[in-house]
Design a protein around this nucleic acid. Structure first.
Lengths: 114, 114
DNA sequence: TCATGATATTGATAGTTGTCAATATCTTGT
DNA sequence: ACAAGATATTGACAACTATCAATATCATGA
């Protein structure tokens, strides 16, 4: 029960250190997980999509509430999470807050998936 | 309080329909969210990294438990989530189960981030 | 068949998260 | 200063999740 069968040889003691690179530090994993967690909610994905696909490149928060069918506080909460994950930027102009996507951030995340 | 200030004109009634494409259906958002949820845990990211970076292209589950510092049931649970999200494939050979990454799936997810 | 070891499942628990109603904060027009 | 409206915060609650110990399942060698 220690080594090879027909096809291969597992045995913890034998095949340790088969990884090519240092895989992913605990810290890096924690950081990455936060971004993916921000992307792991349907409402936030739709928010991000609405923002990214806007012709003007930015969207007023007031226009993000109606299409989602969620309360204003809920949308505000989700926007905050996207913001803190660096996925969107925001700018307050007068009473309104404008959100825009951060393509660089999205690109960086995508590249981590190979 | 309905329209433009210096910089722009929000007013829900005025600027509706500024989206370029149909943004992201509720169903698509749900599906995508599941994949990102699978990627939103540090342990799973490290698992995926360990599997992806292995020289042989596949890793025995028995070799995935020690480096993570988690119990065997916990690792098994995380592997199941990765599997169900389509991010890894598995093959049972004898007593052992071998895991390999699914690059196509990773690529597909990455492309959704533009 | 039996004992052994690898992996999966179950059950329980603590911590996290999405949601909304209520409320607070902040900005502008009057 | 005040009223109105946009956004954020708070508090509460239900649903979900990560984790482990215990246990079950399954394949192999003796």
């Amino acid at each position: 029960m220690s080594a090879k069968t027909s096809s291969a040889r597992p045995a913890s003691k034998v095949c340790c250190g088969t990884a090519r690179d240092i895989p992913l530090s605990e810290r890096d994993a924690d950081d990455l997980a936060i971004v993916f967690a921000a992307l792991s909610d349907p409402v936030r994905l739709r928010l991000l999509s609405l923002i990214s696909s806007s012709t003007e490149g930015e969207v007023c928060a007031c226009d993000l509430v109606p299409p989602l069918g969620k309360s204003q506080p809920t949308v505000s909460h989700h926007l905050k999470i996207l913001f803190e994950a660096g996925l969107v930027a925001r700018e307050k102009r007068g009473v309104w807050v404008w959100y825009r996507a951060v393509p660089k951030r999205l690109e960086a995340v995508a590249s981590r998936l190979r």
